[in-house]
C-alpha cells in the first residue's frame, strides 16, 4: 500500500517548488500545483510505473470570491486502481484569468467534466476541442455556479421570499 507521505515525497522530489500545500484531509492526499504544471503532474502520476494513478475520477471547480487572487480552484480527483490510492490536485486561478490547459489527451473522460466545469464556472480549458456549454442553454450569458448569481428562478409566482429568512 502506498502512503500519503511516500507519494508526497516523490512528488516534491520530482516537481520541487511547483507542487505545494500538501495536506491529507480525511486521509486523502491533497496538494496544489500551478496551471503550467498540471498536465505534467497528471501525466507523471498516470505513467508512474509504481503508482499507476491511471484513473481520473473527477474534475470540478470551486469558487472562492473572497480570496483575492485565488478566486477559482480547479480540483482533480485521481485514483490508482492498482494501489487503491486516491489523490486530489488543486489548481488555483485568478478571477480575471481563468484559463487552464486541458487534460483530454491524457484522459478521454475529461472532456465532459471540463465542459461541465466551463459551463458552471466559466473556466476555459485551453486546447479543449469542443468547449461549449453542456448542461445549460447555449444562450445563457453567465456561469451559474459562481457565488454571485442567484439560485432561484425569478419568474416564480407561488413563493414568498420574506418568510423565515429565505
Amino acid at each position: 500500500m502506498l502512503t500519503n507521505e511516500e507519494v508526497a515525497q516523490t512528488l516534491i522530489q520530482q516537481f520541487g517548488e511547483t507542487v505545494s500545500d500538501f495536506d491529507d484531509p480525511y486521509d486523502l492526499l491533497t496538494f496544489s500545483t500551478s496551471r503550467d504544471h498540471i498536465v505534467e503532474v497528471v501525466q507523471y502520476l498516470r505513467d508512474h510505473p509504481v503508482y499507476q494513478v491511471g484513473f481520473l475520477t473527477d474534475v470540478t471547480a470551486v469558487h472562492y470570491p473572497d480570496s483575492v487572487g485565488k478566486e477559482f480552484c480547479v480540483v482533480y480527483h485521481m485514483h490508482s486502481l492498482t494501489n487503491n490510492f486516491r489523490i486530489r490536485i488543486k489548481v488555483y486561478l485568478q478571477a480575471d484569468d481563468v484559463h487552464i490547459p486541458t487534460i483530454i489527451p491524457l484522459f478521454a473522460g475529461a472532456n465532459w467534466m471540463e465542459r461541465e466545469t466551463f459551463d458552471l464556472f466559466g473556466i476555459s480549458f485551453d486546447g479543449h476541442p469542443d468547449l461549449r456549454r453542456i448542461l445549460n442553454m447555449e444562450e445563457m450569458d453567465y456561469h451559474p455556479m459562481r457565488k454571485q448569481y442567484p439560485l432561484e428562478d425569478e419568474t416564480r409566482e407561488d413563493k414568498i421570499d420574506a418568510l423565515f429568512g429565505r
Binding site: R46, D47, P49, Q52, G54, L81, T82, N84, I104, P105, L106, F107, A108
Partner: peptide, 15 residues
C-alpha cells in the same frame, strides 16, 4: 498524443 493508458491491462485484476 495517444490517449491510451500505458500500464498493462492484463494486470488489472484488482481483487
Amino acid at each position: 498524443m495517444s490517449a491510451t493508458v500505458s500500464h498493462n491491462l492484463k494486470a488489472m485484476q484488482l481483487t
